[in-house]
Simulated scan of single mutants.
Amino acid sequence: MAKIDLDSLGIEELAALRESATDKLFEKVATRRAELEAELEKLAQYSKPPAKKAESAPAPKAKKSEEAKERKQSEPKQSEPKEPVAKAA
């Protein structure tokens, strides 16, 4: 790469150089990102388990809060004996 004497450049020339370098950097980053995304797509096929033919989909599981409500509703209510509380003298 050719060396540039930055001290000899004027403000306008330095600003143009900075803009050019920034544009080139973004271009290279975008190109590399596209390459990496394409490679990730290729690799993704190996991370997925082989698809099995499902005859029927399993029923969705209820949330814990819904399960607790259902259990409370289906269980008969039992009155729990309360322990006597000792009175302070």
Rank of each mutant, 00 (worst) to 15 (best):
M1H: 10
A2S: 14
A2V: 11
A2W: 04
K3N: 11
K3P: 00
I4A: 03
I4T: 07
D5Q: 09
L6N: 03
L6F: 09
D7W: 01
D7G: 09
S8M: 06
S8T: 09
S8C: 05
L9S: 03
G10L: 01
I11L: 13
I11K: 13
I11D: 12
E12V: 14
E12N: 11
E12H: 08
E13N: 05
L14W: 02
A15V: 12
A15P: 00
A15E: 15
A16P: 00
A16V: 05
L17C: 06
L17P: 00
R18G: 00
R18K: 14
R18M: 04
R18W: 02
R18H: 08
S20P: 00
A21I: 09
T22C: 05
T22P: 00
D23L: 14
K24F: 07
F26R: 15
F26H: 15
E27T: 14
V29Y: 09
V29K: 13
V29H: 09
A30S: 15
A30E: 15
T31F: 14
R32I: 11
R33Q: 15
E35K: 10
L36N: 13
E37Y: 05
A38R: 13
A38G: 14
A38W: 06
E39F: 04
L40T: 12
L40N: 13
L40Q: 12
E41A: 15
K42M: 12
L43Q: 13
L43C: 06
A44Y: 02
A44M: 06
Q45P: 00
Y46C: 01
Y46K: 10
K48C: 06
K48S: 11
K48H: 11
P49H: 01
P49E: 03
P49N: 04
P49V: 02
P50Y: 03
P50C: 02
A51K: 15
K52G: 03
K52W: 01
K53P: 00
K53C: 01
E55H: 08
E55V: 10
S56A: 14
S56L: 07
A57P: 00
P58Y: 01
K61S: 07
K61H: 07
A62I: 04
K63G: 06
S65R: 09
S65N: 09
E66L: 11
E66V: 15
E67Q: 12
A68Y: 04
K69Y: 00
K69G: 00
E70H: 06
R71E: 04
R71Q: 04
R71D: 03
K72W: 05
K72C: 04
K72M: 09
K72Q: 12
Q73G: 03
Q73T: 09
S74W: 00
E75A: 13
E75R: 08
E75H: 05
P76V: 01
P76C: 02
P76H: 01
K77C: 01
K77E: 04
Q78A: 14
Q78T: 13
Q78H: 09
S79W: 03
S79C: 03
E80Y: 05
E80D: 09
K82F: 02
K82G: 02
K82E: 07
P84V: 11
P84R: 09
V85S: 10
V85P: 00
A86H: 08
K87H: 04
A89N: 10
A89K: 14
A89V: 10
